[in-house]
Design a protein around this nucleic acid. Sequence first.
RNA 1: GUGGCCGUAGCUCAGCCAGGUAGAGCCCCUGUUUGUGGUACAGGUGGUCGCGGGUUCAAAUCCCGUCGGUCACCCCA
Length: 427
Amino acid sequence: MSKSHYQSPRGTRDILPEEAEKWRWTLNSFAELAQRFGYGQVISPMFEDLGVFLRLGEDTEVVSKEMFTFHDKDPKAPQDLALRPELTASICRAFAQHRPTTPWKVWYEGPQFRYEKPQAGRFRQFVQVGAEIIGEEDPAADIEIITLAWRFYESLGLEHITLLINSLGNRETRGTYNRELSAYLSAASESLSAQSRETLAKNPLRVLDSKREEDLEVISAAPTIQDFLSPEDGNHFESVCDGLTSVGIPFVISPRLVRGLDYYTRTTFEFAADKLQTAQNAVGGGGRYDGLIEELGGPPTQGIGFALGVDRILLACEAEGLQLGDSKPLDVFVVDLTGGSQATQITNEIRAHGFGADRSFGDRSIKAQMKVADRSGALFAIIVGDDELEKNEVTLRDLRGDGSQERVSRSNLVNALDASLKERYSQ
RNA sequence: GUGGCCGUAGCUCAGCCAGGUAGAGCCCCUGUUUGUGGUACAGGUGGUCGCGGGUUCAAAUCCCGUCGGUCACCCCA
């Protein structure tokens, strides 16, 4: 432990092959699903002008405390840079920059970075997949976005996800509600925790997120934003709820769901993994945003989207006992007792025919090589010793069944291997 | 940023309270089996006990500091 001088930076980790297999499968699943829903991929930079993210709201913690920022090497550069802490802002920046026709339906995947203290389900580099519909006000867009996220969880086999949904109204209702809530909480501040009193001064909405025991009573009696919605916003929300019901997606209306990013308006939602026994059990979230694109230099444009945390989703899958991935075992492992050049040629030949093949390196005993062959998970071993070489043959041995083996002529190797594999997979 | 718990072999951990030659299981390597893995048995490799300082004849063990990990608050995916 002391010998390995370096380790991955705090809050980051190496995903090793066994785990990476699950990642690859999961990310592919999302990509295929999103494409089937008619979304196209956007690959945006991992860092942006700092200003892009400042538009998210200077008093959100993600912006004020958790960004990795750095200077451009060019002293004349007008802006500092920041690793992206989320992707909606980048997508909106891209929209404002390229002005594609609307509705613009896009999906993305990739790492994001937040300077936080790590804990279960929280990392400094974490991966999200997400989707956005930009330039569409129709509640059907809200419904489709939520459906896409829901079908993704389903496709992984997750069964214990709760969809929480709320409407934050427009900017005006949000402002009105904010004042009302603030007044209510101030009046009751005697019974609030010290931390909540601090939060109250900065952002009353977020007091509703408190998990502290002493706050629960005050919070549960607080006015809810539902009572302040304009008729239009109320109708929009109702349409979204009705639509979700019509496509069979269960949800829980959660009047106190406010979420951390300030840009949300109207529909907001969150997905909680019920089997995740950690503090961080939100595996996804999203909502509508007004004004964000305008802030970034685009025309006034509506948008709705979500981001799902892949790190946490995989934790949730583990908590539900799901086996992810569909990797096939290696077809064959070549054991060469004649020095290694036969293994080089044979693997080259059968790989060229599309089979999966591996071999060992170094001049090792048959016993050692067979051991490696077994560990590789390969279905068959091809053994070449002096005897085979002399007769221009190889030995083809079944590693997963009864260990039977046969002599095969070198020229017929590919056919024999093909036949043996077909037989094995037909069982 | 605040707090709890934990740092001993590649991995999982015992030993620490009552200081006295650094251990187990798994993994890996070798042999039993001179051309055969997966089972069994036998043997072997591998550790400045996170790091620095202090106490002591003697520190993995006691004390102080520090770094790292982990979990929780906060916040969020």
